[in-house]
């Protein structure tokens, strides 16, 4: 057969983008994410009011044209605070997942490639980390390092490292058995080269999916930590913290809790939708449809 549907990296990128465009749910998810990034980057300038502009004349006002999300107990504009808090959420999410991705992938790659005692030691450590309830582990880390943005980021990063280590290791174990890896060994390629050039590119798909899903959970974890007062410290706005602060006013000022909560909900949902769509597009079983068809005729 002279040519078949794309499996090359460019073909795959194009197919991924086209799938995200054509699947309505994935499209919505991506749109929300784009909006979130714009707000996160430019929130300070886009926000109608300053983040800590206190106005005691306008405490606890219900949503109105002037303040679409209402105001809080100090008269601060909730819309502005939600917008500016997006930056914190995104930052914690991206940095912590970045940490988890880097550390987890490296450990998983070493464990899966070398097997043996290294695999045992590394993966048992990951099992221990994994066995802790996510929040408990994060609380423990924060307790040791003290609360704050940086600590929250590190804590969330540590919590998600085992997932990446496991996903990577599983991928490495199957790719390692492929003939093309044996072919690379047979021409004398070094282990580092084989891991970088042959193994890693072939497990990129599950890692991308995992990254997208983990971002959702990382943002949720950060919100939970902030809610517990262990994350971002006031007066810096964070969705979780705002939720916590609004807790005392549920009956008289519902908007204090609802809007930060909705922001968390939408962000997590958007990452999940995109992650699911990516999973469908990048699923290796989907990639081999053309080969399967060829061998069936």
């Amino acid at each position: 057969m002279s040519e078949t549907t794309g499996r090359s990296s460019e073909g795959q990128l194009r197919r991924t983008l086209s799938a995200l465009r054509h699947d309505p749910l994935a499209f919505t998810g991506s749109a929300v994410l784009v909006l979130l990034v714009v707000v996160g980057v430019a929130g300070t300038w886009l926000a109608p009011a300053g983040v800590n502009e206190v106005d005691v004349d306008r405490m606890l006002q219900a949503p109105s044209w002037a303040h679409p999300f209402g105001t809080d107990e100090l008269g601060r504009d909730v819309l502005s605070r939600v917008m500016i808090a997006a930056r914190v959420s995104l930052q914690v999410g991206l940095v912590s997942v970045g940490i988890a991705l880097t550390v987890g992938t490296t450990l998983g790659l070493l464990a899966g490639y070398y097997r043996g005692w290294l695999d045992n030691v590394l993966m048992r450590c990951m099992d221990v980390l994994f066995a802790f309830p996510v929040l408990l582990l994060a609380v423990a880390i924060v307790a040791v390092l003290g609360p704050g943005l940086l600590t929250a980021t590190i804590a969330v990063g540590v919590v998600y490292t085992p997932i990446f280590a496991r996903v990577t290791r599983a991928g490495v174990l199957s790719v390692r058995e492929q003939v093309f890896v044996r072919a690379a060994i047979s021409i004398g390629a070094s282990d580092l080269r084989i891991m970088r050039r042959h193994v890693l590119p072939n497990i990129a798909a599950p890692l991308i999916v995992q990254t997208s899903l983990s971002l959702a959970f990382a943002i949720l974890s950060e919100a939970a930590l902030s809610f517990l007062g262990l994350g971002v410290q006031p007066p810096e706005p964070a969705w979780g913290r705002m939720l916590y602060d609004g807790r005392g006013f549920v009956t008289e000022a519902w908007w204090l809790g609802v809007f930060p909560g909705a922001a968390i909900f939408l962000t997590v949902l958007a990452f999940n939708l995109v992650g699911d769509a990516l999973r469908d597009v990048l699923d290796p079983r989907q990639l081999t449809v053309s080969e399967a068809r060829r061998s069936s005729t």
Partner: peptide
């Protein structure tokens, strides 16, 4: 040879085509 349709013709004849 592979792709000549030899299997597919039989699968289709017996109602087992994809």
């Amino acid at each position: 040879e592979s792709g000549s349709g030899k299997s597919m013709s039989v699968l289709a004849a017996t109602g087992l085509a994809p």
